[in-house]
Structures are given as C-alpha cells and as structure tokens.
C-alpha cells in the first residue's frame, strides 16, 4: 500500500479492490494486465485510482440498474401507459447534492496525494534528465549533499529491439527477452542506476522537443520541456528493474525511446557511482569537458 497521506485513509477500500483485481505489484507490464501497477515507490496514486474506480462502478450500477429496470417495466409492449409528471424538485436536489458530497470526498483524497507529490524537498540525491529525439540523457548532479563529478550518459533503445522494430524486418518481437521477461521496446543500452530507500529528486528538461519521462512503477510521469525545468521525486522501496517509455509525442521515434531504471541497494549503488566517477576522471584527460549540452533553442 501507499503512504503519503492518501494510502492510510483508504486502505479498506483498496483491500476490497485488490480482492477483485488481484492487486499485484507488477513492476513491468505483464501480458493481459488489466489494472494499474501499485508501484514500488513510496508515493503511488494506485489507491486513489482504485477508490475512484469503485466510486464510478457503484454509481454506474445504480444508474444503469435504474435504466434497465425502467426499460423492462415501462415498455409499451407490456402495456405500460405513460405518466404525465415531468418534474420533482426534491429528487433534483438529491441528485445534485449527493454527487457534490462524493466529489468532495474524492477531491480531498486527491489534494492529499498532490501535496505529497509536489514536495521535492529533503531529497538525498539529484539526477538531471534530458530528453532528446530519441534518447534520454542522465546526469548525476549530487548524492548525499555532495556534488557528483561528471557522471552522465545517454540511454537509448537497445539494439536488438531496434533491429526488430524496423518496418517489415520479419524479426520476431517475442524473441527479445531478458530473464524470461519480454523486453521488446522496453530495454535500453545503458539503464539509469539508482539506490533504493533514498529520496531522489529528478530535474527533467527537454533538449529539442517536449518528451515525458514515465516509469509506471514510480507512479508518475513528468514532461521534459525544452528550456523549462520540472521536478519530481521518488523513493524506491525494492531493488529491481523498472521499465517505462517516453509519454509525450516527440516525433517519428516517440515509440522507441524507452526508460529503464535499475534500482540497487545503497552500497551497491555507491560502489557503482564511484567507478563511474573514476572513469569520468580518466576520460576527462582525453576528452574535453563533455557537460550536458544546453537545450538547443528552436527555430
């Protein structure tokens, strides 16, 4: 279940919901999946989604039920004679006020969720994400209050998917698997590596056109807009590989710029980061500063 102000108050609802939908914590899409993932981050809109869904289902059952009863009882072929009334102030007040109350309840939940989401303070780590046509660039900005020295790389669609996805390639998408899991169009050459249990702040910008960074297991997407920085955060609870895709139309290969986040235990991450920093230093000698390119102005 979630925390962050929305989970607790509705756990009863969600429990009932899960009974019906299975409520597995899918990390990645699975065949025939019908519902939203619960996610692996501390913040997740899953519970709110379930509440809203059930509210709609219940109202739907009532409204459609009434309709079907009407269609059955008041048909001419059964000899029904039309009544003359066409108004009832009392009823109309009821069905104005009751929805308002339901909506206030939902709005209250959603506001709580929103407030938690919007709070990017207190992060222990900052990563800058830049979207390009059609790849992502990740730059590690700071970790545990310390600046990270030039760790950054580009991450793009992995090669076998790329070959398979060419028009009439006649290659079989089913064949692209990692650990028995189909990763067609959901795998990259270099994943974003992050630690679990750390509040990570992402700074998200666009390099050319608008993209949107989305990993369903983290519970949100955020647009990457050229020249404007957005922020979002996550705190991943379990190690794992979490896959997502660009979620804003960004040109012909919009469907082919996946995102892979590899969440590892803190110690492992720190080790990884240290190696990356060393490598960066070695490279720096050979290559002159290859900082994150500034956004390219349009036009």
């Amino acid at each position: 279940m979630t925390s962050g102000g929305i989970g607790r108050s509705v756990s009863a609802w969600a429990a009932g919901a899960m009974a019906l939908f299975g409520g597995e914590a899918w990390a990645n899409p699975v065949p025939n999946q019908m519902n939203m993932t619960q996610g692996v981050s501390e913040w997740s809109p899953y519970a709110m989604h379930m509440v809203a869904l059930w509210v709609c289902v219940v109202i739907g059952v009532i409204v459609f039920g009434a309709m079907f009863i009407a269609m059955f009882r008041f048909r001419k072929s059964r000899g029904a004679v039309a009544e003359k009334w066409a108004h009832s102030t009392k009823l109309e007040i009821v069905w104005t006020v009751v929805p308002v109350i339901i909506l206030i309840f939902l709005a209250n939940l959603a506001t709580g969720g929103l407030t938690t989401f919007a709070d990017t303070t207190g992060a222990d780590m900052t990563i800058k994400i830049t979207g390009y046509q059609w790849k992502w660039r990740y730059d590690y900005v700071d970790y545990k209050g310390k600046g990270v020295d030039k760790v950054g790389f580009v991450s793009k669609l992995e090669e076998s998917s790329d070959r398979t996805r060419q028009l009439k390639s006649n290659l079989d998408p089913d064949k692209i698997q990692v650990d028995g899991y189909n990763t067609y169009l959901l795998d990259v050459d270099k994943p974003l590596v992050v630690p679990v249990g750390v509040k990570i702040r992402f700074i998200i910008v666009g390099g050319d056109v608008i993209h949107s960074w989305w990993v369903p297991a983290l519970g949100w997407k955020m647009d990457a807009i050229p020249g404007i920085a957005n922020a979002a955060w996550t705190k991943i609870k379990e190690p794992g590989v979490y896959r997502g895709q660009c979620a804003e139309l960004c040109g012909q290969d919009h469907g082919f710029m996946p995102i892979v986040v590899k969440a590892v235990p803190k110690a492992e991450f720190e080790q990884w980061l240290a190696t990356q920093e060393d490598e960066a230093k070695i490279q720096k000698a050979a290559q002159t500063a290859q900082n994150a390119p500034a956004p390219v102005p349009q036009g």
Binding site: A70, F74, R75, A82, W85, E92, W95, P99, L103
Partner: peptide, 30 residues
C-alpha cells in the same frame, strides 16, 4: 483545475439522471 473539472460531473449527472427519469414511468418502444 482539478476541482473545477470535477465540478462538471454535477450538471452532467443532472442530465443523466433526468434522462433516466424521463424513461421512468413512460411507455417505451425501442
């Protein structure tokens, strides 16, 4: 914008309920 959007459900609901009530007590053919 979230609140304002949700509010639209109220007048729309009125319409839906009124259609159902129009059917209620009628003499319907299909």
């Amino acid at each position: 914008f979230m609140y304002a959007t949700m509010l639209i459900a109220v007048p729309t609901g009125v319409k839906v309920f009124n259609w159902v009530s129009t059917m209620w007590g009628g003499s319907m053919t299909f």
